Structures are given as structure tokens and as C-alpha cells.
Amino acid sequence: MSKAGARLIKNLTEAGAPLDTEGDSATFNFTISPVSSFDVDSRLIIDYSQKMRHAARKSAFSKDFSLASILLIPVVLNPSLAKVQGAKRFKKKENSYAIKRNIDFAEWQSASQAKRKKILLHFMRGVVGDIPSKYISEPDRETLLRTVLDCV
């Protein structure tokens, strides 16, 4: 870890910020990090990300599962404020896969809480399905999808 990173963690810890140190020793980390504009209620995504992170660490992946982490970035932005293109990227050095994808702003804003869960589930199925098979086997993809369904 860099000196700047260590200093940041020290400052956050001293300020009482909750840090997930369990992830430091985990063999696999699954992170959902939403990006949203100020006018978006993203609590459902944040709550889901907490459940999913812990559940994914306990999932029974095959011994051939090699990814160290998966990062999903759901983007819910007011189009009048900003537009972000989706992206997929494998980071060889970190052995991680990241996917950034938009969730339709108007649909999210007008949806009830129950409908937002369905939108989030559809998003999750899509991004897990988008991970190329050279990085995740079909049995491990199914394990991850079951974990996704269990957390909604």
C-alpha cells in the first residue's frame, strides 16, 4: 500500500469511519460502488452492496475460480447533469474485473421500492452475464447469480 493510502486509512479510522478490513484477507471481494447524482435515492443499491459483499465471500466457488475481485458500478445520473458511458475492463495486475453500466434515470426515479428491486436484479443479472467466460466458468457464474438472487 502506498504511503498516501496508508495515511488515508489512518485518518479515516481515527475519524471513526467504518472500514471493511475483513476484505483485506478475503480470497475474493465483490464490490458494488454506485455513482449517482444528488437527486437520486441510491440507498437500496448501497444496502444491497453490503449484503452482496458478505454473501459473495461465503459463496462456494470452484477451486478453478481465479478472480480476486469483481467491481460493479451502477450509474444512476440525471442526464441533464452528466452522462457516463458504460465500460468493462479486466485489470491483470489486480486480477479483477470491473463493469460500469447505466441504470435508466427516469425509470429509477419513477419506480416504487419494489420496482427498484426488480431494476437492480435485472442490472445484476446483466452485469454478471457480461463477465467473459475466460474470467469466470459457467458453474461459478451460476454460483454468483444464485448469490445475487439470495441477496435481493
Rank of each mutant, 00 (worst) to 15 (best):
S2G: 08
G5K: 13
G5W: 08
R7G: 12
L12K: 14
T13P: 00
T13C: 01
T13E: 02
G16E: 00
P18H: 07
P18F: 03
D20W: 10
D20F: 11
E22D: 11
D24E: 13
S25E: 08
A26D: 01
A26M: 06
T27A: 13
F28L: 02
F28S: 02
F30Y: 12
T31L: 14
S33R: 14
P34G: 12
P34K: 10
S36G: 08
S36L: 04
D39Q: 11
D39A: 05
D39H: 02
D39E: 04
V40S: 02
V40Y: 04
V40D: 04
D41E: 02
D41R: 05
S42W: 02
R43A: 15
L44F: 05
L44V: 06
I45Q: 10
D47M: 13
D47S: 13
S49R: 04
S49Q: 03
Q50E: 14
Q50N: 14
K51I: 11
K51Q: 13
M52K: 14
M52Y: 11
R53E: 14
H54S: 15
H54Y: 11
A55F: 05
A55K: 11
A56Q: 03
R57C: 08
R57N: 03
K58E: 15
K58C: 00
K58V: 01
S59I: 09
A60E: 13
F61G: 00
S62I: 08
S62W: 12
K63G: 09
F65Y: 09
F65K: 00
F65A: 03
S66Q: 14
S66R: 15
S66Y: 11
L67N: 01
A68C: 00
I70H: 00
L72K: 00
L72G: 01
I73H: 01
P74K: 08
V75I: 07
V76I: 10
L77Q: 08
L77I: 09
S80Q: 15
L81R: 12
L81Q: 12
L81K: 14
V84P: 00
V84H: 07
Q85K: 15
G86R: 03
A87P: 02
K88W: 09
K88Y: 10
F90L: 07
F90W: 12
K92P: 01
K92C: 09
Y97K: 04
Y97A: 09
K100C: 05
N102I: 07
N102K: 05
I103M: 08
I103T: 06
F105Y: 15
W108A: 06
S110G: 05
S110T: 05
S110N: 08
S110H: 08
A111N: 01
Q113F: 13
Q113G: 10
K115N: 10
R116D: 06
K117W: 04
I119E: 04
L120S: 02
L121M: 11
H122V: 04
F123N: 06
M124C: 11
R125L: 12
V128S: 03
D130H: 05
P132S: 11
P132D: 14
K134H: 13
Y135K: 02
I136M: 13
E138V: 03
E138Y: 02
E138M: 10
E142L: 12
E142I: 07
L144P: 03
T147M: 07
V148A: 13
V152S: 09
